[in-house]
Design a protein around this nucleic acid. Structure first.
Length: 336
DNA sequence: CCAGGTCA
DNA sequence: TGACCTGGG
């Protein structure tokens, strides 16, 4: 979800190798949802351990993060805290959509039909899954940061301060929170399943550079936030029949959100407070980002003994992880 | 999504 | 070596 600015922003395709040496703040909830919705069997069932606990997100974390670290990147996971009060409507609506999708999935299964897309739409990220994710990340030596409110805001804050180079998220919200660079499609294989059909296409990682986009569009960050609010964010419904293109035109014409609304004789509830939230969101500055040596025994014990992962596969991944972190910590690394 | 096998 | 497929938990 999030703000729909895809049509407005130009992205630059990159190779995963180009992330070598960069610190990446990962929007944890966004990434975990991605794993949970995609890592499924053909009938839509997620991966589960012997007791029926979902493990798709753990598989995603283990293999993707190992690959990223092996490519020379460094990552920190940033988890959401308390949602802003303006998000209530969106959260309720998502819960409603999920439960409807759950019903559709069950019906599809009863009738022996393909219910994959319903299963995806029914994806839930439970507290247990969040706890399991943090446990795995910590065992892998990857920093876990708890945001006071929105994870994307905290990640953007860390990027603005220069503690990380990029924010990883499929959403564009981090740009409104001021992230200088956002990386999307941060997968390694470059294959993505098309929604609906059982067809795979090449999808490359891509970077959006905030300063470059603002300059190209001839607006400032506050105006980009205004554009987002005009076409709708997680915190407000946008104006009717106003998408990113129209919103840009309106802001170019009138300059500010207030003037656009006045000129059109329309209102957006809490618009000014929502802009303030994007410009000055709750963040913490007492985080620590430092890769620790992975605890191989902990990773193995958790994934293999408790979550029924294959000993052989996890061992292989952990070996690669240990090697990657060793190389990453060596100061000689940058000379090669 | 990713790993790991197959096959040309 | 790379396109393709299956199973992972």
């Amino acid at each position: 979800m999030g703000v729909d600015l895809g049509d407005l922003l130009e992205r630059e395709n990159i190779e995963i190798k180009e992330l070598s040496g960069s610190w990446i703040a990962v929007d944890a909830f966004n990434t975990l949802y991605q794993f949970l919705s995609i890592i499924r069997q053909k009938d839509g069932t997620p991966l589960k351990d012997g007791s029926g606990r979902t493990t798709s997100h753990l598989s995603g974390i283990l293999y993707r993060m190992t690959n990223l670290l092996e490519a020379g990147a460094k990552v920190a996971f940033v988890f959401d805290g308390e949602p802003p009060r303006f998000k209530r409507g969106t959260l309720d609506q998502r819960a409603e959509t999920r439960s409807r999708a759950q019903e559709m999935w069950e019906r599809a299964r009863e009738e022996g039909l393909d219910g994959f897309k319903y299963a995806q739409a029914a994806t839930r990220l439970g507290d247990d899954m969040v706890a399991d994710s943090k446990r795995l990340l910590e065992a892998m030596g990857i920093p876990v940061i708890q945001a006071p409110s929105e994870g994307e805001a905290q990640a953007a804050f860390m990027a603005i301060r220069g503690d990380v180079d990029l924010v990883a998220s499929q959403d564009y919200d981090a740009l409104l929170f001021g992230a200088p660079q956002v990386v999307r499609n941060m997968a390694v294989t470059g294959k993505r399943k098309l929604p609906g059909k059982n067809v795979y296409v090449d999808v490359q990682p891509e970077v959006i550079d905030l300063a470059r986009e603002l300059s190209r569009l001839g607006i400032d960050r506050e105006q980009l936030v205004d554009i987002g609010i005009l076409c709708g964010t997680d915190y407000n419904v946008g104006l009717r029949r106003v998408g990113p293109k129209t919103a840009l035109k309106l802001i170019r014409e009138h300059g500010t959100l207030e003037r656009v609304l006045k000129a059109r004789g329309e209102t957006i509830e809490d618009a000014v407070e929502i802009r303030e939230l994007f410009l000055h969101p709750p963040t913490d500055n007492d985080y620590e980002i430092e890769m620790k040596r992975p605890d191989a025994d902990k990773v193995m014990a958790f994934l293999c003994d408790e979550r029924d992962f294959s000993q052989e596969r996890v061992e292989k991944a952990v070996k690669r992880l240990e090697e990657a972190v060793k190389v990453g910590q060596s100061t000689l690394d940058k000379w090669f």
